[in-house]
C-alpha cells in the first residue's frame, strides 16, 4: 500500500471531501425540500422547520404518480424476469454444448452488445407502430428482452463450474432442462441475484426508450412522469417535484444500501466486460 506524504494526503482529503459534498448536498436538499410546506421552499433554512407529507400526498392525488409507478414496476418486473430466463437458457447452451454454428452465434451475441438502442430506435419504432404496440407495455418489454451482457456474464460463470456437476446428473438420466433447473440454477444464485439488481436499475432508470414508444398514461413510466411534472410545473411548485424525484430514486438506493458489496462488484464486472 502506498503511503502518501503529507501535502498529497491533504490534497486528497480536500478533493474527496469537496467531491462528496457536491453529491451529498444536492441530494439532501432534494429530500429536505420534499418535506417542506410551500411557504418554506424559497425562504429559510435548507431543512424543513414544520415537516409535512403534503407533497407526497399531492404527487399521488394531483399528479397521478401512482399510474406511472405501476407502469414502471410492472414492465420492469416482467422485463427483468424475461431477460434472466432467456439469458440463462442461452448462456447454458453456449457453455455446455458443442454444436455447429456455435462460434458464429456467439459472435452475433457479442456484436449485439455493442449496438445501442439509439442506433436502432428508428426502424424499431416504425415496426412497433405497424404492429400496434405503440404506447403499450409490450413496446417497453419485448424489444429489450435479449440482454447480451447477461449471457456473457452467465456463460463465464457456467464455464467455471466443474464438469462433474453436469455429468453426475446426466448419468442419472435427467433431461437437460432438469439439470439446468435443479443442478445449475442453485449454483448460479449469487450471480443471478447480482445480475437482477443491475438489470433492475438499468430498466427502472431508463429514459430514452420509454420516451420513444410511450405517449399516454397507458404506458408512461415513472421517469417520464417526473419529466412531465417538470414541464407542467415550470419550477413553480418544487415540493411535489422533489417528492416525486425522491420516490423514483428510492428503490435503487434502498437495494444498494442492503447489497452494497455485491452491487459494486457486479457493476464493475459488467462494466469491464461492456
Amino acid at each position: 500500500m502506498l503511503v502518501l506524504s503529507r501535502p498529497w494526503r491533504i490534497i486528497g482529503q480536500v478533493l474527496l471531501f469537496s467531491l462528496a459534498a457536491t453529491i451529498v448536498a444536492p441530494l439532501l436538499l432534494v429530500v429536505f425540500t420534499s418535506f417542506k410546506p410551500p411557504n418554506e421552499i424559497y425562504a429559510g433554512l435548507p431543512w424543513p422547520q414544520s415537516p409535512t407529507f403534503q407533497n407526497y400526498i399531492d404527487v399521488f392525488e394531483k399528479l397521478s404518480l401512482a399510474i406511472y409507478l405501476w407502469n414502471s414496476i410492472a414492465t420492469t418486473v416482467l422485463r427483468v424476469a424475461g431477460q434472466l430466463v432467456l439469458a440463462v437458457l442461452a448462456a447454458y447452451a453456449f457453455a455446455r454444448f458443442q454444436f455447429p454454428g456455435r462460434g458464429l452465434l456467439f459472435a452475433l451475441v457479442l456484436g449485439a452488445m455493442m449496438i445501442p438502442h439509439q442506433l436502432t430506435f428508428l426502424p424499431i419504432y416504425l415496426m412497433i407502430t405497424k404492429l400496434g404496440w405503440f404506447d403499450t407495455w409490450t413496446a417497453l418489454i419485448v424489444p429489450n428482452l435479449a440482454m447480451p451482457l447477461a449471457v456473457l456474464l452467465l456463460r463465464q460463470h457456467l464455464l467455471s463450474f466443474p464438469r462433474e456437476l453436469y455429468d453426475a446428473a446426466s448419468m442419472d438420466g435427467a433431461s437437460e432442462l432438469r439439470i439446468l433447473w435443479s443442478v445449475v440454477l442453485p449454483n448460479l444464485k449469487p450471480i443471478l441475484a447480482a445480475l437482477t439488481i443491475v438489470l433492475f436499475v438499468d430498466c427502472w432508470n431508463e429514459y430514452f426508450w420509454p420516451l420513444v414508444v410511450t405517449e399516454t398514461e397507458a404506458a408512461m413510466t415513472a421517469q417520464i412522469g417526473v419529466r412531465r411534472f417538470l414541464n407542467a410545473e415550470q419550477g413553480d411548485d418544487l415540493g411535489p417535484l422533489m417528492a416525486a424525484m425522491t420516490i423514483v430514486s428510492l428503490p435503487a438506493l434502498a437495494v444498494f444500501l442492503f447489497f452494497q458489496r455485491q452491487i459494486i462488484q457486479t457493476f464493475v464486472s459488467v462494466g469491464v466486460k461492456g
Binding site: 417526473v226 419529466r227 423514483v248
Partner: peptide, 9 residues
C-alpha cells in the same frame, strides 16, 4: 450513488 440515480433526476 449518482450511478444509481436516473439521469432524469
Amino acid at each position: 450513488v449518482p450511478t444509481l440515480l436516473s439521469f432524469v433526476v
